[in-house]
Design a protein around this nucleic acid. Structure first.
Lengths: 398, 398
DNA sequence: CTGAAAGCGCTAACAG
DNA sequence: CTGTTAGCGCTTTCAG
């Protein structure tokens, strides 16, 4: 009566039944074994249709177009589905047929533990997740972390079952960029790199924002400024893993646009104030450690003890720098002005002078751009607003 | 010369060409237009094979079994693939055929912005992501947030193209639990609920850990204890959205095992010390706000002003409570002992007396259990170690 | 080393 | 409202 698969023996030892299909196996809980005729193999839409003696279309309709069949028939379909343990149409097969995966891929090349320790990055992910959720899309974290080789990571990109990608803050020469592009799927870039052909981008005006902040600092009377930033290039030409002075040449040819734009903003303000932009002491950090800012502050003050203001390209750097300064007995803002960038909650609550950027909104817009691309089909660049927050960590130089 | 898709007018203003295939469109960057004969439609393995005049098997082998064909042929395949803009085998089609999706689904019912604001939850996700990355699996955040109806969320669970699920700290009656089980895929539960048939679980001994911590508090001499916890049930029978006193009945019949186990741990210690466990003042919070702990502290001290120790089931609650106490002019630990749970970095750096649990390891083990299930095929329960951390927030009562 | 045949499980026209 | 017909793009025996 029942048609039996020829590929699988009917395994039925003990309390559960393991049908081998793939490495992971599938668990049939106890109940389904005693209650129902154990299915020889996983139920499918076709087997359900056969059981019901209706066509596959009808079963499919029962799930996807309830209005296309009578309520009773639908009920009958659904209940025998339950009896057979049929979980509904297979997502993968459906995806193949409908040509939509129901998920967007998120590419973050930075170590996840970093991204997860920077509230600004997290806010971005939360915003993206929110917009995906709103349209019922899943969010796939693609396995491209630094623990894997680039070729493994590329394989993951190539193997991701997604309808599009979001690239979060990658360097100009990120090795996964071409791989992502190769998929010919819609792509939205967040922050950097700029000018990826055919892809939309959402970001902020880093240069203008940082310039406004620097003007505030200069207005207060500061003339010797130190700047702490994350690494400017994918490479790391310095000795140890700790923060290091960046020479002008390196500042001029960055892989990470965002960082260099922010530096450029400071230099703009300095030039406008009649200062030599090259007098800016730039220190870059390679690792994203909770103490990176503090270590960077040490390097900067070592290189130029006359610094009276420390500007940082991220709040996390600034907060760490503040902790370090306190430990060194340097009073903020009395003896040292410190500024950040991002406007994360802890920074705001600690009164940091900083630039607030809408990180959540960034994620949300990136998602929306993917879910409903602009009518024109042309890539767009969305520049979100920022705001200088004058806190309690900036004041006139001593 | 140029061949144009028949569904869409040939859009070619400015810099790019849009070929329509699916709602989202595919972007062909400028180069591919001028360089190569624009493909009528997306290249497939079959079309590549036809172009090369070899069989599909051969092309497939070029990608999946390099040793099955000559290096030259393989090179030829790969290069014409590049020329045609063929991104390699379609992940979805491959998944259908191989019966493996290459991703695990993560089910978090709590609002994502909460999970993303609790470092312990984040650590868990980071650990899970790490273990997935190690085996090249993607991590799919399934869209089941509180912004969507349960039926939408269920659809997302049913539609997730994954090889297994991780359920993070759900209530006993979480509506997505049965839906997940229905998929007949491997499932690993983290923390709660317990005893899901046929699924492995990883967690800690919440009761024993909390009991040990409570013993420390009692040893210090405290007799009147307040306990701050997250909500005990999926429902919220109290008036406003703020924290509220939980009556013994509600403490006894919880939906969230973890919370009630931790409470039970405190009661165990109290009973052992000769105190009436029912004298414990329990306050539960519904929302996961940064200020929830503080508000809870207010409620607890209001209900029982003689409280000298405030035990919290999460560090985030305890830290918030400490902030609130300071604002009220209550000195910790001089006038009030405060304890937490989790051992998140901020808590440790602020000297909170707490229980450290290995959140990252939890995520890692959950992933590993999914990726390489126990040989026996039987579900396992992994109980990870915890450790009481005596900090600077606990001392003898005033 | 290469090719032919046979689906994986499903949905989308289009007829009845 | 229901069934028939065609694939979606790929991998995998199994023969040459």
């Amino acid at each position: 009566m029942k048609i039996v698969s020829n590929n699988f023996a009917n395994v039925a030892h003990g309390c559960r039944c393991v049908l081998g299909a793939g490495a992971m196996g599938m668990n049939y809980p106890l109940q389904s074994m005693s209650r129902t005729p154990t299915p020889r193999r996983r139920a499918t839409l076709a087997s359900l249709a056969a059981e019901l003696k209706v066509s596959r279309t009808t079963v499919s309709n029962a799930y996807n177009r309830p209005d296309q069949l009578s309520a009773e028939l639908r009920e009958r379909v659904l209940s025998t589905a339950k009896r057979l343990g049929y979980p509904g149409p297979d997502p993968v097969a459906r995806s193949l047929r409908t040509r939509r995966a129901g998920a967007v891929g998120l590419i973050i090349t930075e170590p996840l533990n970093y991204s997860f320790s920077d509230p600004a990055a997290l806010d971005f992910v939360a915003g993206l997740a929110e917009s995906c959720e709103a349209v019922g899309q899943g969010l796939l974290l693609v396995a491209v972390g630094p623990n894997r080789s680039v070729s493994d990571g590329s394989a993951a990109v190539l193997a991701a079952g997604v309808d599009g990608f979001v690239i979060y803050s990658a360097s100009d020469d990120d090795p996964y960029l071409p791989v992502v592009l190769q998929r010919h799927l819609p792509v939205v870039v967040v922050d950097q790199p700029r000018d990826v052909p055919g892809t939309s981008r959402v970001g902020i005006d880093d240069r203008a924002a940082m310039r406004a902040l620097a003007e505030h600092v200069l207005d207060l009377g500061h003339r010797e400024i130190g700047l702490l930033t994350m690494r400017l290039g994918r490479d790391w030409p310095h000795g140890g893993p700790g923060p290091a002075l960046a020479d002008p040449e390196r500042v001029r040819t960055p892989d990470f646009h965002v960082q260099s734009e922010r530096i450029a903003g400071v230099r703009d303000a300095m030039a406008a104030a009649g200062l030599d932009p090259n007098s800016l002491t730039v220190v870059e950090s390679y690792e994203h450690l909770p103490t990176s800012g503090g270590a960077g502050a040490d390097v900067a003050l070592d290189a130029n003890p006359r610094i009276t203001a420390l500007m940082c390209t991220a709040d996390v750097l600034a907060l760490s720098a503040m902790d370090r300064l306190r430990a060194r007995g340097v009073y903020v803002p009395g003896q040292m002005t410190v500024t950040g960038f991002d406007g994360v909650p802890e920074a705001l609550s600690r009164g940091l002078t900083t630039v607030r950027q809408p990180s959540i909104e960034k994620g949300r817009r990136a998602g929306e751009l993917l879910h409903s691309p602009p009518r024109s089909g042309l890539p767009v660049v969305e520049v979100l607003d920022t705001e200088v927050v004058r806190g309690r960590t900036s004041g006139p130089p001593a």
